[in-house]
Design a protein around this nucleic acid. Structure first.
Length: 419
RNA sequence: GUGGCCGUAGCUCAGUUGGUUAGAGCGCCAGGUUGUGAUCCUGGAUGUCGGGGGUUCGAAUCCCCUCGGUCACCCCA
């Protein structure tokens, strides 16, 4: 394309206006919702000791294939974070907080994937985590936070899938049953599914290949293997969602990509995104993760939402439109002095969005720029105005009206015209 | 990582069976007499046709490699 020596690397892109502002607004909106729900912000580093992430589960692709890992000049093995949860757990282990600790975050993560629509190597997430409570009501609260966020954006076509992945003790029993089942049907499975079966039988359930899906549909279901405790917790979660009026579908074959999840798992998808990457976000409970990272045996639950995909869904649904970035006033200065400089500064100090042209452009060119900028008012100041202590005020809507105003009262004049 | 499709000005695209100085619309810039936009008229600038190699008298058009994008698988946000 455009001839330039360097381009942004695969899977990365440059956010320009109006997308950049929209991006910020989205994060701001999430921040408000999270704060209202009692979450404080956390800003962990973007890279950690590689071990922090490896403990997420070596069977997952996120860790085994997609980690941006390298050695720094001090010989440390470090990795760019592929997600936030592990960092949050590490932070808690390092700086103990009063429990339950509720925290939210926003920022980029990195995965060495093959880029696709809605899938980037550097991608942004907003998310929240709660450490130190087993209460299923917290699970409900997390889902409610995400749900409220989507609603505030104007996304109405979000679907919620929930499942329970059981406790650490339930899992092995289920995995055995699953393994037996798939082994007995091995001849019907794709080669890839058989590969997956070796490293992580759970994920075979998730296969989108038609042949695999048929077999998976008949596979034993995790819900039948839950301990009494886990079952009760799951019931409580479902009852909580009902109580809040949040619609959901139980998805017995929902498994999440990272291995650390226990009990509640959930995922949000958008019907507006017909692409394969239609998952807006997801999360669940990770009751063994902190201990696994060398911390105390505290339970945790959290979720992350993909900012890029959410924005894509907003585009598809035509909601959460970009805000107007236009200046309110354009100063057209054709004097040799510093009138333009002073006038713009005065307007800005008064909280009015104002801008101007540079490089001594002709009045016609400056008026053109004023029009293009979307400003409602053009303030014209030339030798005549300077001499008479006035400013010409021109409204830019339609054919435009022009009048003269006293230089000393210009801010007031502009304010009254804008209101 | 595997496979399909695509890659021409800032943007959206056209470019006929390979044939002379590569086009359109939008955008941008400048004019249409003295200091006035959006409309209208006129003129102008910008592309090593993603990059490299090959076939050919001749390639944006054919072949190979490569880079990038996109879609599906995979994976996931």
């Amino acid at each position: 394309m455009a001839r330039s020596e360097f381009q942004s690397l695969p899977g990365t892109r440059d956010l320009l206006e109006p997308d950049a502002s929209r991006f910020r607004s989205l994060v701001d909106l999430f921040a408000v919702e999270a704060r209202n729900a009692g979450f404080g912000q956390i800003v962990p580093p973007m890279f950690e000791d590689v071990g922090v992430f490896v403990r997420l589960g070596e069977a997952s692709d996120v860790v085994s294939k997609e980690l941006y890992a390298f050695e720094d000049k001090g010989g440390r093995s470090i990795a760019l974070r592929p997600e936030f949860t592990a960092s949050v757990c590490r932070v808690y282990s390092q700086h103990r907080q009063i429990l339950p600790w509720k925290t939210w975050y926003a920022g980029p993560s990195f995965r060495y994937d093959k880029p696709q629509k809605g899938r980037f190597r550097q991608f942004d997430q907003v998310g929240a985590e709660v450490i130190g409570s087993n209460d299923p009501d917290i699970d409900v609260e997390m889902i409610a936070l995400a749900w409220r966020f989507f609603a505030k954006l104007g996304l109405t076509d979000v679907t919620l899938l929930v499942n329970s992945l059981g406790d650490a003790e339930d899992r092995p029993r289920y995995l055995r049953a699953l393994q037996d089942f798939f082994s007995s049907r091995a001849d019907e499975l794709s080669e890839q599914a058989l590969e997956t079966l070796k490293v992580n039988p759970l994920r075979v359930l998730d296969s989108k290949r038609p042949g695999d899906a048929v077999v998976a549909a008949e596979a034993p279901v995790l819900v039948d293997f839950l301990s009494d405790d886990a079952r009760a917790a799951f019931e409580r979660v479902k009852a909580g969602l009902d109580a809040l009026g949040i619609p959901f579908t139980v998805a017995p074959r929902l498994v999440r990509g990272l291995d650390y999840y226990t009990r509640t798992a959930f995922e949000f998808a958008s019907a507006s995104l017909d692409a394969a990457q239609n998952a807006l976000g997801g999360g669940g409970r990770y009751d063994g993760l902190i201990e696994n990272l060398g911390g105390p045996p505290e339970p945790g639950v959290g979720f992350a939402i993909g900012v890029d995909r959410t924005l894509l869904a907003c585009d598809a649904a035509d909601v959460f439109r970009p805000t107007d970035l236009s200046p309110q006033v354009w100063v057209v200065a054709v004097t040799d002095g510093t009138e333009g400089l002073r006038l713009v500064e005065e307007l800005r100090q008064s909280g009015i969005r104002a801008d101007r042209s540079f490089d001594g452009r002709s009045m016609k060119a400056q008026m053109k720029a004023a029009n293009r900028s979307g400003a409602e008012i053009a303030l014209i100041i030339g030798d005549d105005e300077v001499a008479s202590g006035t400013v010409s005020v021109r409204t830019m809507r339609g054919d435009g009206q022009q009048e003269s105003a006293q230089r000393a009262e210009i801010v007031e004049k502009v304010r009254s015209l804008l209101s």
